[in-house]
């Protein structure tokens, strides 16, 4: 289980085609795997290795470097509370403690019902709106304990349609229509694009012959 689905294989191939070298597609493909299963399984990594022509160890090397990739099942909702400096100054750590108590888990843990995984994260670029958190990478700003409890209730009761399950990031993907694309150049290609060459100021000596 959890190799990429046939649809996702097609998408994966399209994504690979966007890069001059297949390995460049590793991170996008790992996201794809995580979107499909909620986490990145070993099978998925092996599949990605096959698709990109690298070894599974290389896929794991890349995958494990990046925090967002989870190699084990996590909750449906990943609750990431920022405790970095701006949030700390405004109660982020207290909010984290409250979350620990409310959910009954420590950072890194998942609730028994598989609904929530809690994380204590670094700055998420909303510092002026501290304390803040993300649920599956969707922001909640200036949140206090009551706000947190309500958020959890809403998530539990299925009232937050705006938040997809863990693994889904952007719900809109770039679509590169081959008809419209300029075409990605491989790093082996040398020579400037024709349009650029045509617009370059001709060196003095060549002006005549050109």
């Amino acid at each position: 289980m959890s190799r990429l689905s046939p649809d996702n294989v097609l998408l994966a191939k399209e994504i690979i085609g966007r890069y001059p070298r297949p390995k460049s597609a590793l991170i996008p493909l790992l996201h794809l795997a995580q979107e499909q299963a909620g986490y990145v399984s070993n099978d998925a990594m092996e599949h990605i290795a096959e698709l990109t022509g690298v070894t599974p160890a290389e896929v794991l090397g890349t995958c494990s470097f990046y925090e967002m990739f989870k190699r084990e099942q996590v909750g449906k909702y990943m609750v990431n509370i920022c405790t970095n400096i701006s949030c700390q100054l405004n109660g982020g750590e207290e909010l984290l403690h409250h979350a620990e108590e409310t959910l009954g888990i420590r950072p890194g843990g998942t609730t028994d019902d598989g609904m929530f995984t809690l994380e204590d994260v670094e700055c998420i670029a909303a510092c002026t709106e501290a304390p803040c958190l993300q649920v599956n990478y969707r922001y909640e700003y200036r949140i206090d304990n009551d706000g947190f409890d309500k958020l959890i209730d809403d998530l539990r009761n299925g009232n937050r349609y705006d938040i997809p399950h863990h693994g889904t990031l952007a719900r809109i993907r770039q679509h590169l229509d081959p008809e419209r694309a300029a075409g990605i150049e491989s790093p082996e290609v040398t020579g400037k694009p024709q349009w650029f060459a045509d617009r370059e100021p001709a060196p003095e000596s060549e002006k005549e012959t050109a």
């Binding site: 070993n42 990594m45 092996e46 690298v54 070894t55 599974p56 160890a57 290389e58 896929v59 794991l60 090397g61 494990s64 470097f65 925090e67």
Partner: peptide
Amino acid sequence: SLIHFIDRGSQTQVNTFP
């Protein structure tokens, strides 16, 4: 490339794919 750096920072280790 059958052995690789895995994880990051002070957690970095060398290992194989499981």
